[in-house]
Amino acid sequence: MTFAIRAEGLVRRFGATTALAGVDLEVPTGTVFGLLGPNGAGKTTAVRVLATLLTPDEGHATVGGYDVRRDAHQVRQLIGLTGQYASVDENLTGTENLLLIGRLLGLSRRDARARAAELLAGFQLTDAAGRAAKTYSGGMRRRLDLAASLVGRPQVLFLDEPTTGLDPRSRNDLWDIVRGLVAEGVTVLLTTQYLEEADQLADEIAVVDHGRVIAQGTPEELKSKTGGQVLTVRPVEAAHLPVVLAVVREVTGATPEVNQTTVAAPVTGPGALPAVVRRLDDAEVQVAELALRGSSLDEVFLSLTGHRAEDDPADLADTADTLEGSPA
């Protein structure tokens, strides 16, 4: 197995804030590797270090075999980067944006125009190619931004929360594009706080919290770490919810979660389901839903960190990154 990205012991501080506290990563070539964590976990800082925009205070990393400190120029020739917000010039047309980047990368005018046309067609933007980017919808701008990061045909693509603010259809469109890139051999490092996005795209996931990698594995491997199964119960009558809560708590030994009238708790043994059925039958509680299912990534994250991925903890690592993260 070859690795497109390797990082060992990465540390990055912003004053009193430690954004990265010793991060180790190995990203296999030709895969999607997900960095999953809430705002402030250090995901953006990690991307900026690997993209040579920030210098680590400690540790080292390589991208495509090149050291991000010593060989920054070579690393930049291998990578593409799309951040959380579209970085295209809104006063230029779609074609002009891509032409500009092509020329900055040293392409001839003819080659830059051909590459722009190829990407606009691939991202279904040909009809809007002559319009100013400020007239594009959010999803169209996102696609143009991603197209811009691909002008130089990067081997490694950093996607830093690329679907932030997109509607579900635009998000699904972008997911399809990412899958297509990986099928062509591109390695993708994806940061996200969306559990579904990580589950849909990532071959492997590192869960990041407070600047540290606290778990790593395939989505299925991570799900198995919570105990493997979750019991869900929904009573026919909402008035019976307190009884259901008490029964599930007693049988599973866990604190149940409640979503409207559905009660859920992790289980570790096969006897939980029949035990709950007997208890609820004795209490004359009718249920509309009673099932065992596999754990979700959301439950994995909650069990690992004590909060959900979409929660914004007190840690201000990425905020400090935004304020102080000028290119190194």
Rank of each mutant, 00 (worst) to 15 (best):
I205A: 04
A202C: 15
G211W: 11
V207Y: 01
V207H: 02
T192A: 11
V186S: 07
E196K: 08
I205K: 06
A198S: 08
H210R: 09
Q193P: 07
T187Y: 02
T191N: 10
V186H: 00
V208M: 10
I205C: 02
A198C: 03
E184I: 02
L190Y: 04
G211N: 04
Q193V: 10
L201Q: 07
L190W: 01
D209A: 15
D203W: 11
A206P: 01
A183H: 14
G185D: 15
T187W: 05
L201D: 08
R212D: 03
V207R: 07
Q200G: 01
G217T: 00
Y194N: 02
V188H: 11
T192N: 11
G217V: 00
V208A: 04
D203V: 10
V182L: 13
T192Q: 11
V178I: 09
E197D: 03
R212S: 05
A215L: 01
A202T: 09
A202Y: 12
G211C: 08
Q200V: 12
D199E: 15
Q193E: 07
L201S: 08
T187F: 11
E196V: 05
L181H: 12
L201W: 03
V182S: 10
V208G: 07
G217E: 05
D203F: 05
D209P: 07
R179N: 10
L189D: 09
A202D: 07
V182G: 13
L189I: 08
V186C: 12
V208L: 14
V186L: 05
I214H: 11
E204P: 03
T192R: 01
L195Q: 13
L190K: 04
V178F: 01
Y194M: 00
E184D: 15
T187R: 00
V182T: 12
V186E: 05
D199C: 06
V182C: 13
G217C: 06
L181D: 07
A183I: 01
H210I: 06
V178C: 02
E204F: 06
V186Y: 11
I214G: 08
A215S: 06
I214E: 10
A206E: 03
T191G: 14
L189K: 04
V178S: 01
I205H: 02
T191D: 15
A183N: 12
H210A: 09
Q200Y: 10
R212H: 02
A202L: 07
T187P: 08
T192S: 13
G185Q: 15
I214F: 03
E184F: 09
G180T: 15
V213S: 00
L190D: 12
E184K: 13
I205R: 12
G211D: 02
Q200I: 12
Q193I: 01
Q216D: 06
D199N: 12
E204G: 12
E197Y: 05
Q200A: 14
